[in-house]
Design a protein around this nucleic acid. Structure first.
Lengths: 192, 192
DNA sequence: GACAAACTACCAAACGTTAGGTAGTCATGA
DNA sequence: TCATGACTACCTAACGTTTGGTAGTTTGTC
């Protein structure tokens, strides 16, 4: 990962981190500006309004993750289990020693208080993850890596829900091994 | 459920509903006052500050649910499956045709932006649910209602996480059957 | 008359946003 | 070569609005 020297990117970095930590409605332009080392109006020079900044943060987050996931899903030398492990790494990273949760999990928690175009970006995030998971589960079932009876959409939803929920519950209960536990349990369901 | 004619209770009702819908940091005294049909200072007459109101909302929510859950857990004529069904009903109720999520799920999403004493109440909520679930799972395993290999704490966490996550993801994706699907999948794991 | 519960009328602080201006960069053309 | 004009990046100051919260007063009930 390259260091973002570009100011717009540093604003996005700060905004993302603050949303993951505190939520969209609990942060202000001043909070972001302070973290970047500039003043509030300078942020508006780069992003016309708070909602536009919010939208840009989600889009970047979503697309960055998508290229990573699509890469491992289409790689010939990667198994379905490999892909699933890659999928889990951001969750374990967030869940161990950080007080951050998934950006879109945070935003979904205050979904009804979000501008409409931000809601759209969040929805796309979850829907694309469901699709990706269904695809990987189907692959793994074909290769015999995964063995389970549940319909693919149900299993994909259980995985997404429990990982998102785990991050949120973990932060409120401070159990260091929470994410590892949930992922291990999920894996046991995929290959008993 | 009795109708709350008491003003303090009606304030708590409105605050709870608004937090479940939009989140703590996105609502104001004015929002609550408008819903109750009184003015902002009247709320402060009943609750000294926003954090105190927030704390009272969580405490009432937690205790109301606790008496219900403890009732069914200790009832001799109720099986572990019965108890688990009772546990799931609030989630299915919220998850079908409502844009609300669990109060504490909402608050955990903005955990780091919450006053300290509110955080405590939220933590207690999740920890007591984990304990209750472990107890019910142990009961059901003893009676043969539940059959699974995972350690009790792992299974309890998976259930709590996936139900909380399901509510949040569902609202952002508008899948009507989301909660029913997850609960059916969870039940299949408890008794394959 | 006493008390609680509601009100009107405020406050200081913070919010997102706008206005207006200052440096510095960079391409263009005489 | 060196003005000129356009542009980007950032600033200070202020806008109107909303926030949580306070003070003092009226209303209703026993």
């Amino acid at each position: 990962m390259t260091i973002n020297s570009n100011t717009a990117d540093r604003i996005l970095d700060a905004a993302q981190e603050l949303i993951q930590r505190r939520g969209y409605n609990a942060i202000s332009f001043n909070d972001i500006a302070e973290q970047v080392g500039i003043k509030k109006p300078s942020i508006i020079h780069h992003f016309p309004c708070k909602a536009a900044l919010g939208r840009a943060v989600i889009k970047r987050y979503r697309e960055h993750l998508a290229t990573k996931l699509d890469g491992v899903a289409n790689a010939d030398d990667k198994s379905a289990v490999d892909a699933f492990d890659v999928y889990c790494t951001p969750y374990t990273d967030l869940g161990t020693g950080s007080d951050k949760i998934c950006l879109c999990g945070s935003l979904a928690g205050e979904f009804m208080a979000l501008p409409k175009d931000m809601r759209n970006e969040v929805s796309i995030f979850f829907e694309s993850h469901i699709k990706w998971l269904e695809n990987i589960l189907a692959q793994g079932k074909k290769t015999g890596e995964f063995i389970f009876d549940d319909p693919l959409p149900m299993m994909a939803q259980l995985i997404l829900d429990s990982l998102q929920g785990a991050l949120i519950v973990k932060r409120a209960t401070a159990n260091t091994h929470h994410l590892h536990n949930v992922i291990r349990t999920l894996k046991a369901k995929l290959n008993p």
